[in-house]
Design a protein around this nucleic acid. Structure first.
Lengths: 123, 123
DNA sequence: CGGCCATTTCAAGAAAACTCGAAACGAGCG
DNA sequence: CGCTCGTTTCGAGTTTTCTTGAAATGGCCG
């Protein structure tokens, strides 16, 4: 991940509704949630939600799937992991090679955001 | 850390100049850098830099120290760790108790951003 | 104490983000 | 095939963020 992409992801999460939205999707797991359910849960008008969903999508943090008339959104754990990795790399004071300024994609950071398989999230 | 604080920190980093600035300070280590050196390094007008520095400071991501006429800024690793922890907790699919919706401050996440003691950063 | 130098604050304008009702779009049911 | 329902797009208004020169502040040297 490079800076521009990280900024996009960071900016996508730096908003009350979108952070709540992403948290909701992370909690919902791989099955995701339809847009309508999210709007109802977060108590946000449909058009506003759509705007935020588009932002998150543009940042690559959510995936979109169709299921009948509904569009199902789910958290993109890979992108979130990439963001965490970027943040970790740019601190790089944890023990890894620190002097590395722009060694490209390292990817050596441990993946914290594993794909949460559905574990009883009935909501 | 709670959502509002995380949003502030996320927003502080979600900006080209500020992300570069924070990266620079992280790399600079505990000794930090004077404002002027940062402005020169990043090629940003003093007033703009001051604005961004204030943003980062408001988010608690940087510390301010005086040294003669210069103000030295350094990265606040603790706050960054808190942010990483918040992000990790809200994913919570890594192995910790996942169903915990708002269990307050967990702090069980491993600190990745340890205070980088000056390790030969001569710049 | 007078001046200088690093930095911040002020003010004003430009650009971007956010909000949300209304209209449009498209899939699927009957 | 027409209708309905879930969702997105559009448009317009409000708010926030970003930028920068100029002025103010405060420490320090002589």
């Amino acid at each position: 991940m490079q800076a521009e992409e990280a900024i996009l992801a960071l900016g996508a999460l730096a908003q009350e509704h979108r952070l709540a939205l992403f948290k909701l999707l992370v909690r919902a797991g791989a099955e995701g949630l339809p847009a309508g359910a999210i709007a109802a849960e977060l108590d946000i008008p449909n058009s506003s939600l759509s705007f935020h969903l588009a932002q998150l999508n543009r940042a690559g943090l959510v995936n979109q799937t169709r299921s009948g008339r509904s569009l199902i959104y789910s958290a993109n754990y890979a992108e979130m992991n990439a963001l965490m990795g970027y943040l970790t790399e740019n601190c790089c004071a944890g023990g890894t090679s620190c002097g590395a300024e722009d060694s490209g994609e390292a990817g050596s950071s441990s993946a914290v955001f594993v794909t949460a398989q559905s574990k009883g999230n009935s909501a």
